[in-house]
Structures are given as structure tokens and as C-alpha cells.
Amino acid sequence: MPEIPEPRSTSQPLVISALAEDRPDLLPQTVALLRRRSFQVRSLSIGPTDTPHVARVTVTLDGPQREAKRLVRELGRLLYVLSADDLSDVPRVGRQLALVKVTADAAMRPQVAQVCEVFRARIVDVAADTVIVEATGNVDKIDGLLAVLRPFGIVEMVRSEPVALARSGRHLAYSSPPSTWLEDRLRTDSKQAH
């Protein structure tokens, strides 16, 4: 059975969130910025939002607080970024998704299920001698769940990069009129819709 590495440090990372135009090379452009400005990146997550062609970028970093402020400023240099905010010391909801394939035959399954209940995780796949557990939560909760699942035998697992939103009263917005590119995309969308 493969050896499962020790979980990453649970010291609180810095959390930076941004809105950006969802162009094909948003991901590599963001990675290039993080690398060339020498940030100690823990994670990067990019996904669409409810606004067409606008993506949400979440970066977690190690380092002193000023690194978060620095990244907010540097993100402003990326062509596609519309606005950015430091969520590190703001009340926020941060979540990570984990899928964990655990050794569990029919006899052990109830015990895994019990653990899942405590962590509000779910068993989403059952095979003869393994189950896949799905859990969402903050990084600490996922670390806690893994610690309890480890004795059963973790066959393989995957964790998504964390994402976060500030709690009510604070949200990312951008005031500028849409760029020519965005206008162009929206026009193409409406043509296709007809």
C-alpha cells in the first residue's frame, strides 16, 4: 500500500481572492505572476462565477501578512484581473473538498460510516473492499478526518485547492465598464442564444 505523506502544516495561510476575466490563459498567466514575484504559494484555485466570463481566483500563501497585501497589488498588474482582496484576517468561509478511498470491507463499512457522520462526510462509492469518502470543510477539518481514516488504510486520495468567501458585509466587486473583450464575448453569447 502506498505510504500516505504527512499532512501539510496547519498554520493559517494567507488567503487572497480576485475576480478576473475568464480567458483561456488566465491560469498560466496567474502562475507566471506568482512564480516571478517569488510568492510562497500553497494553493491556487480558479473557477467560473455566476457572471459570464468572469472567474474567481483564490490563492493561499505562506508568509507574513504583508505578503498578502503585496499579492493584492501585484495581481492588479495582471491584465485580466478586475479586482482583488486580502481575506486573510476577514471573517470568512473557507472550504476544501477531499475524496478519500479507504480500505473497508463489508464488516468495516459501518465504522467508516460512523466516522463520516461525525465529520459530516459522505460515502459516495462502495466497492467490495473499499469506499470513497467525500468531505468538505476547512483545511483543519479535512486534516482531522484524514487522521481518523488513516488507521483504516487510505488507498488513495485527492484534495482540491481551498476556496473562500468573506462573510456578509464584504464582497469583491469591480466598478469598471466591461472591457471590449468581455463585451465581445457577451455579444457572441447572445447571438448563439438566438
Binding site: 492588479g76 484581473v81 478586475l82 469591480y174 466598478s175 469598471s176 472591457s179 471590449t180 473583450w181 463585451e183
Partner: peptide, 12 residues
């Protein structure tokens, strides 16, 4: 070609 001068993304 765009009819008007191109507007870049980002806040003014």
C-alpha cells in the same frame, strides 16, 4: 475591428 478604442479590463 472594434468600432471604438479598445477598453482594457480592470478598474479605472
Amino acid at each position: 475591428w472594434p468600432d471604438t478604442p479598445v477598453r482594457l479590463p480592470g478598474s479605472p
